[in-house]
Design a protein around this nucleic acid. Structure first.
Length: 103
DNA sequence: AACCTGACTTCGG
DNA sequence: TCCGAAGCCAGGT
C-alpha cells in the first residue's frame, strides 16, 4: 500500500475488477479515512487519466451513478452494463451482488 | 484566513 | 422508504 491517502486511493481503484463496483465511502475507508469520500471524487476527477483508472466502477452508497445527465452519466452506465453489471428500474445496482471488497 | 464547492454519507423524522 | 439537514475533506479563489 502507498504512503499517502492519495496513493492508496489510486491503488484501490485500480484493483477493482471488471464487472464489479466500489463506493466512494468504501474506497475512502480502505484508504484510511472513512470520512473522506468526497476527496475520492476529487482524486478521480484530477487523476483518472494520468493513472488510467477504471473510474466508471465507482458509484455512490445507494448503488447509483452520481454523475449528472450530460456530464458522463450515460457513458458510465453504458460502460458498466458492458461489463455485465445490471441496473434495476430505478437505475440502481444491487450492491449485495456487485460490490467489490478489497482483500 | 474565509468561503465556496463537489462524481459523498449518515442520520433523524 | 424517502427527503432534508448537517457533517466532512481539501483544493481552488
Amino acid at each position: 500500500m502507498g504512503e499517502t491517502f492519495y496513493e492508496r486511493v489510486i491503488e484501490i481503484i485500480k484493483s477493482i475488477p471488471p464487472g464489479k463496483i466500489a463506493t466512494y465511502g468504501e474506497i475512502a475507508d480502505y484508504a484510511g479515512n472513512q470520512r473522506a469520500a468526497r476527496q475520492v471524487t476529487y482524486i478521480l476527477n484530477s487523476s483518472w487519466e494520468k493513472h488510467k483508472l477504471p473510474w466508471h466502477r465507482v458509484v455512490n452508497s445507494k448503488g447509483g451513478i452520481s454523475l449528472k445527465q450530460g456530464r458522463g452519466y450515460k457513458l458510465q452506465k453504458k460502460l458498466l452494463e458492458k461489463e455485465g453489471i445490471i441496473f434495476d428500474e430505478d437505475a440502481r445496482i444491487d450492491l449485495k451482488r456487485f460490490q467489490w471488497f478489497p482483500e
